[in-house]
Amino acid sequence: MPDCFEFKEDDISLTPIWAILPSLPLECWHPNTLGKIGSRLDTPIAMDSLTMKMERVSYPRILIEVDTSKTLVDQVEFKLPNGVIQKQPIVYEYTPKFCIECNRFGHHKSSCHDNHQQAVATAAVGNPAAITKQAATKKTLPTEWTLLE
């Protein structure tokens, strides 16, 4: 990483995710074909060794860098060498939660802490008891890292 590297705001939501292509015909297990399919998902990075060596023939697995602020692709269509159109489902091993409101991983916009605090403050303007009730039920979040030994 270069000295004084700074993240751009749109780079924060990029993360690698393993994608599984269930029931993909064996003729499509070529690195170029998997790369083209991966490009339809986002940016292909690699495929696992079992896929490369065709040691697990139940499904290929490819690593894709995706923008988690966007909806993940759940199916791609392509034409097989015999002319048949293949509708290929995509299964992600893990789908990270990313909030486009505060640019953080761990939750979606609908459950954003910042949105929740703003909604409570707005509701409390006409109802002071709401602040007291919210303060009584609020869980405290850790503010520092804790080292486990």
Rank of each mutant, 00 (worst) to 15 (best):
D3M: 07
D3R: 11
C4Y: 12
F5V: 08
E6Q: 12
F7C: 08
K8Q: 15
K8S: 15
D11L: 02
P16F: 06
I17K: 00
W18H: 03
A19Y: 06
I20E: 06
I20T: 06
I20V: 14
L21H: 00
P22E: 01
P22C: 00
P25F: 03
C28G: 05
L34S: 02
G35D: 01
G38T: 07
R40Y: 07
R40A: 14
R40I: 00
L41T: 04
L41W: 02
T43W: 05
I45N: 05
I45F: 03
I45R: 05
M47E: 02
L50T: 15
L50N: 12
T51D: 09
T51S: 02
K53G: 01
M54F: 10
E55Y: 08
E55K: 12
S58M: 13
S58A: 13
Y59D: 11
Y59I: 00
I62P: 07
I62M: 00
I62Y: 03
L63S: 01
S69L: 08
L72F: 08
L72Q: 00
V73P: 04
D74G: 06
Q75S: 11
F78N: 07
K79F: 10
L80M: 11
L80H: 04
P81Y: 04
P81F: 02
N82I: 07
Q88I: 03
Q88R: 02
P89T: 07
P89I: 01
I90F: 01
I90S: 08
V91G: 00
V91P: 05
V91H: 00
Y92N: 06
E93Q: 15
T95G: 02
K97W: 09
I100M: 14
I100G: 15
E101C: 15
C102K: 10
N103S: 14
R104E: 10
R104T: 12
H107M: 00
H108V: 15
H108T: 15
S111R: 11
S111G: 13
C112R: 04
C112P: 07
H113K: 14
D114R: 14
H116E: 13
Q117G: 08
Q117C: 14
A119S: 13
A119M: 10
V120Q: 09
A124R: 08
V125G: 02
V125T: 14
G126F: 09
I131T: 07
I131P: 06
T132E: 13
T132F: 04
A136G: 04
T137H: 11
L147M: 09
L148E: 14
